[in-house]
Amino acid sequence: MLSPDSAAIVRATLPVVGGSIQDISARFYEMMFADHPDLLRDLFNRGNQANGEQRSALAGSIAAFATILVQRPDERPDAMLSRIANKHASLGITPDQYEVVHKYLFAAIAEVLGDGVTPEVAAAWDEVYWLMANALITLEADLHRDSPVEGWLRATVLERRRETPDVVSFTLRPQIPLSFKPGQYVSVAVTLPDGARQIRQYSLSCAPGRDDWRITVKRVRGGDTPEGEVSNWLHADVQAGDELTVSAPFGDLTLPADGPPLLLASAGIGATPILSMVEHLAATGSTRRVTVVHADRSPADHAHRDELGQLVAALPGATLHRWYEEVGDCSCRPAPNVGQVDLTRIDLPDPLVAYLCGPLPFMRGVRTELLRRGVPASDIHYEVFGPDLWLGQS
């Protein structure tokens, strides 16, 4: 909780800081990478830096955290903090790196806002930063303490399988057997041809309870930009018998053991954590009522399409609803719908808990309809692949 004096200053300056936060974020990264090019080379996602998504995510998280501190001081944005902490833990972020971020972030604030940053304003926003940073440091320490391994480990590629023209799955055997929760992901660290070490997260697209893992990787066609460089490398260079450097499993979009009926909704490659959940439900003989919804461009683009259909069919309380922009001559059963997902055409149970994964427009549309139906916001959970541009809006 902010001190009363700082809360008053942050409340008064939030419109100015919030209105400039994108410029502040851009200048922050520019200065930090100029002095520490190794961070861009070996830690930060170069594709997300190139397209500006990381700047937007940082801006959204800071603005959302400050807004909650001054508007709802008795609350703490635990869902937002947990999401960030899990991502940081999977990347291997260390507490000392928060000092580096602080140095350049506050230099950027002073430069962008100029004389508006009085000592009192700087002190108030410093308090905001360290409240957020210390909360994340504590959460990340807890995650590492609960993890059975420290640092990175090696995993052997047992199988490479083409799922669609743009999607390949890799079955991995980590050097140490590790359990995970349905919906979690692992980081994969690769050394690219230019020597850079880049890290990406991939959901585990299988159920827990086995020695092997599976990740499913969609090729991101980024043209001449660095976007998609890791997925392209994995598609082009990794074969059965190779080894990958991976993290322990992390992620807070996980399926609880029991509870009310479920809505599991995905689009595109967002199917992967949902597939893990569905397989886990089938493997454990669940009788929960489960509504599975998936959207894709076409049946040929739907990774693990047949596998998902078989798993849902094995669940006595589950139904499957698929929407494809182009159906073609697909003989899928049940017959797919054409166009965009329309939840008004589905009889959903009340109450329910929803898990969403896919592009932001898809998740926003599903969430809006669920809220309209009276589903509490606290019962709608989501996973974003890449920087969380939804921070502060969920």
Rank of each mutant, 00 (worst) to 15 (best):
T118C: 09
R214A: 08
G92Q: 03
V117C: 06
P336S: 02
A207E: 01
D342N: 11
L91D: 08
S231F: 07
A267M: 02
I269Q: 05
R173N: 06
A240H: 12
H304G: 07
I380L: 08
H235G: 10
A64E: 01
A8R: 12
G151N: 05
Q54F: 05
L311H: 14
V246T: 12
P249S: 07
Q340V: 15
P182R: 02
R27M: 11
I109R: 07
L244E: 04
L255P: 05
P37L: 05
A141P: 09
R55M: 14
A110R: 11
G19C: 07
Y355T: 02
D212N: 13
T156R: 14
A124L: 01
D5V: 04
T191W: 05
G222E: 03
T284M: 04
T216P: 05
L136Q: 06
P165I: 00
W125N: 08
E30G: 15
L172D: 00
L262W: 07
L315K: 09
A50I: 00
G285H: 05
P15T: 01
A34T: 10
Q340G: 08
V167T: 10
G317H: 07
D306Q: 15
I176P: 13
A141Q: 13
V366N: 04
K181M: 13
G392Q: 11
V230I: 05
R173D: 07
V292A: 09
I215H: 07
V327C: 07
A318K: 00
A133D: 00
G47N: 01
